[in-house]
Design a protein around this nucleic acid. Structure first.
Length: 191
DNA sequence: AAAACGATCTACT
DNA sequence: GTAGATCGTTTTG
């Protein structure tokens, strides 16, 4: 699962802000013989989500920061994949605001940085990632961003911006940003 | 109730 | 490359 998640899009919509990152680094924590896994010493209040159903979030705090995992095994097993880094794709101004930096390399590099950038915290522990609401992962992986295409959300609602983003990115494999308006965005939004 | 512990980050060299 | 910050959670008293 850790390998399969590479290239997929992590999409968050918290505080009515849509942010998207392409998963570029993951780390698996196994249920058996992995002393680094949070489930190694059995169930606890903190790691309960890891023993819950797969496809749900496990969000925990470490050094005053939040980290996000996707649960990967059936209930009672206790295994998850830590999302370690993203490539910023969309909602970059929101990320910059939450992270208090505009350095693109500092936005989502690291498991806690990406959570801060996307507004992920303990309220999303146990969250069902398969509903396509608030926080979820795209079904398909997409190639790395190679070319910059300007995209706007100024004249479209947030919800249609989500669909626009996914369709546009998947179809064209273009890097998208929320900074300026462009013809491509307007055209795609209409359809 | 207090202390210790991190699946980390920032600032600075 | 590293010292120091940081705070939710667990462990200890």
């Amino acid at each position: 699962v850790a390998q399969a998640l590479i290239g997929k899009l992590l999409i968050s919509r918290s505080e009515n802000r849509v942010c998207v990152g392409r998963i570029v680094e993951t780390e698996a924590y196994l249920s058996q013989g992995d002393s680094a896994s949070h489930t190694y010493r059995g169930p606890s209040r903190k790691n309960a989500a890891m023993f819950g159903p797969p496809g749900h979030a496990y969000v925990y705090a470490i050094h005053a920061k939040w980290c996000f995992n996707a649960v990967t095994e059936p209930q009672e097993v206790g295994s998850a994949v830590l999302i370690r880094a993203l490539e910023p794709i969309w909602g970059i101004p929101h990320m910059e605001h939450r992270r208090s930096t505009s350095n693109p390399y500092e936005l989502t590099r690291g498991p806690a940085r990406l959570c801060q950038a996307l507004g992920i915290n303990r309220r999303l522990d146990h969250w069902d990632l398969t509903t396509g609401k608030t926080l979820w992962i795209s079904g398909e992986a997409v190639p790395p961003a190679t070319e910059q295409t300007i995209l706007t959300s100024s004249r479209i609602g947030v919800t249609s911006a989500e669909n626009l983003l996914l369709r546009y990115f998947l179809a064209n494999n273009r890097y998208v940003s929320g900074k300026r308006s462009g013809v491509a965005a307007t055209t795609t939004a209409t359809h």
